[in-house]
Design a binder for these strands. Structure first.
Lengths: 209, 209
DNA sequence: AGCCGATGTTATCCTTGTCAACATGACCCC
DNA sequence: GGGGTCATGTTGACAAGGATAACATCGGCT
């Protein structure tokens, strides 16, 4: 798994070692999910990628920059999952609920990564690309809300605010889950059920206004 | 400010230096809020408290333990604020909304601290007291929900689940705010308005079910 | 008064982020 | 094909910071 299969190979293969940037991101991701969490060490990532300690600096300005790259990829995956879920539904309200559910499921599937994506371990303001990736995820939810505007009975200007409500709700639930503050909701099914219930309640509240 | 005035002196004054544990927690809190964030350094806290580098180890097992103490105090303050807000309202539904609003305001007032309180910088599972402090805050919200059970039209067994919804919503909003992902909602008033609207929507949704 | 243990200090080690100086080898151009 | 050039990778070193050990100090108890 160290040499990641050229899954979404968009950039041309760089130099003689292979794709070191990608290898480093993959190694760091793996380390994070294997328990290192926010304390991933640049040295460990370099070693896992099979290069020397200083090699990463040819591709990343700092440890934090590597972390940012990992998180950006995380946001891309999140965006993808939300888009897929949204596209699979046939009806706007169902699509909206599915989008929210996909969000929570992502957090449940990749808790360590999700945690870092919303942690001060990486100063988002310092990495515009990271901020953009985050906003791209939010945009999916906004689109889903816009599609369900009629069913929700809201105006176009309210879309952003309503999307924010949805994001807050799912993000809050997901955060509590990955932080272990949800003693119950242990099996993933329980979390799923909780998320679905909450989303339904919020939608009901919107329609009642 | 190095020798902190014995503000809420509850433990007996220890030894000859004064109350070093408290001084360290205060110093660390200050450093965190002055921009150090999760990268507070044990050395800096020790220096700010006017003691040598190794002194903190007489009172805290590790840097993380000091951090945990800071966060515990943060949760206590959060609990207090929620309780005050809840007590000030005269009607159950208003009390519930006020409790949620107090939560968001705490995050807005002390963003750096709030951030750390829900970050992987400190492994909550390793500090039972920290976990307890967090649960105490949640308990306030649960009590507020229980008081409004009739108005919300929910059963006693649903209380925990509904409280969780409310916590998720407010925590999500607060998290997005302190993470700077809310480009809008800059002035605190906007955040207040957003929070109130969301809480009202959620309550409406609960009553509609 | 004199002991004891809690508290604080000094010296030191180890990990880790970061940088500078050097090595290498792929690609381009003639 | 051969040499130049620049991106890429390596070695070595430094500084910051967490952690510990050995020593120093001071208050309270007997």
């Amino acid at each position: 798994m160290t040499p990641p299969p050229n899954a979404t190979r968009t950039t041309k293969p760089p130099y003689h070692h292979g794709d070191l940037p990608r290898a480093l991101v993959a190694a760091a991701t793996r380390l994070i999910e294997d328990g290192a969490g926010a304390q991933v060490t640049l040295r460990a990532a370099a070693e896992a990628a099979g290069v020397s300690i200083a090699a990463p600096y040819r591709h990343f300005e700092s440890r934090e920059a590597l972390l940012a790259a990992v998180l950006i990829e995380g946001f891309h995956e999140l965006t993808q999952r939300m888009e897929d879920a949204r596209a699979a539904a046939t009806e706007p309200l169902a699509a909206l609920a599915a989008t929210g559910l996909a969000y929570v499921r992502f957090a449940a599937d990749r808790p360590a990564l999700y945690r870092l994506m919303f942690s001060p371990a990486c100063d988002k303001a310092a990495f515009p690309e990271l901020m953009d990736a985050g906003h791209a995820s939010l945009a999916v939810l906004q689109d889903a809300v816009r599609d369900a505007r009629r069913q929700l009975g809201i105006t176009e200007e309210a879309v952003a605010r309503v999307a924010l409500s949805g994001w807050s709700l799912t993000h809050g639930l997901a955060s509590l889950y990955v932080d272990g503050l949800l003693a119950d909701a242990r099996p993933a099914e329980a979390l799923d059920a909780l998320a679905q219930g909450m989303i339904a309640t919020l939608i009901a509240g919107l329609r009642a206004s």
